[in-house]
Nucleic acid binder design. Structure first.
Lengths: 200, 200
DNA sequence: TTCAAATGTGGGGACAGTCCCCGGTTATTG
DNA sequence: CAATAACCGGGGACTGTCCCCACATTTGAA
């Protein structure tokens, strides 16, 4: 199922030796470039730093999103795995909170990534859209569990939760290229617990 | 004070007849273009649709932010005025809520605007930075009042509130070019009231 | 050796931002 | 009021960057 789909990008790796070498070099260069300058960085620059012609890059990754998706693949798989573990945890609320934090941290790693993710959230077509869909499904499951346990308001919808998480991820990924987990946690806690004071 | 600074952009309007005509045409074209395609739209395209050479546009507005700031000026002034009114309202919490909603709606009108605003929030230099600073000060005042009335948790800092508001504005401005006030209100209420269920 | 697959140079199109000469406007002077 | 000079704003054209593709060439695998 999901694992197949997520790791399915493996099957996209070319079979010929030189092609695979270039493919891997591009992904590696993309990771470095994204981490340094965000996902909006120059594609040609990535190709250059990978020692590859830009047309080669475009052959393997026709769109920017595809390159982003592959560059994130194993991280995404790890987060997804963590989500499955959390689904079996005893505390639904802390599980949901940790899941959201992991998601935010993941989406916030690269500057501009939240935008790409939310863009891809709709159209199922792209690789990024698929991984994004997985994240949403996990969110839905963990949210439902927390609601059934009476720990989260029943009227909260997954989309709203996802919107808030995406917003937080966007804020923290804007400045401070690397995700600031502490700030993300603080903002998430505020959103979860609420800002209004409780009277006794 | 503030009103002077905000409407100070008036003094930037050229005095010569043709210059003022072009200036106004550019601002008008920019408003339309921003509303349609977001603040990231092509500057040259704005100049073209204003019937003006791009160099003329750059003469009046050396940076994109400056054009954005002027295009927003009167809206910003209106929001700022609303903030001053709200500061005298009897209900600190509802005042804060309404202020945040107005701010989010304003920042969310143009796609990509939240990013520009948060970028300009730091550096005081630009016009956009100044207006942004005003918004933050108003937020700080309304927040302090609500906290003194015991209606908002005392540990909430203005920056955190602003981060959440910016995040929400970003989410709603991404899709649906015009700001979706209903969705913004819902997300804001969630963040304010919190998502966790209260026991009894 | 053969041939499909992969490569990358080089170019077209779009955009941001700058330069600089030209033409019109305003101020000044007779 | 009229003519002229100084000046200010206009915009075509240019540089540099980026995305994306066409095509001739090379390379790996059978």
């Amino acid at each position: 199922m999901t694992a197949t789909e997520i790791t399915d990008w493996e099957s996209r790796r070319p079979k010929r030796a030189d092609a695979r070498r270039n493919y891997d070099a591009v992904v590696e260069a993309a990771r470095a470039a994204f981490a340094r300058d965000g996902v909006g960085t120059s594609i040609d620059e990535i190709a250059r730093s990978a020692g590859v012609g830009n047309a080669t890059l475009y052959r393997h990754f026709p769109t920017r999103d595809e390159l982003i998706a592959v560059a994130l693949a194993e991280n995404m798989a790890a987060v997804h795995k963590r989500g499955l573990e959390l689904a079996g945890t005893e505390e639904p609320l802390v599980a949901l909170r940790e899941w959201l934090l992991a998601t935010i941290a993941q989406i916030g790693t690269y500057g501009g990534l939240p935008g790409s993710v939310l863009d891809a959230a709709g159209r199922e077509g792209s690789l990024l859209g698929v991984t994004c869909h997985h994240m949403q499904e996990t969110t839905r499951a963990l949210l439902a569990r927390a609601q059934e346990a009476g720990e989260i308001r029943a009227d909260v919808r997954m989309e709203e939760l996802f919107d808030l998480a995406a917003g937080i991820a966007w804020v923290i990924s804007r400045d401070s290229g690397g995700a600031d987990t502490a700030r993300a946690g603080r903002l998430l806690d505020l959103a979860l617990d609420g800002l209004v004071a409780r009277r006794a």
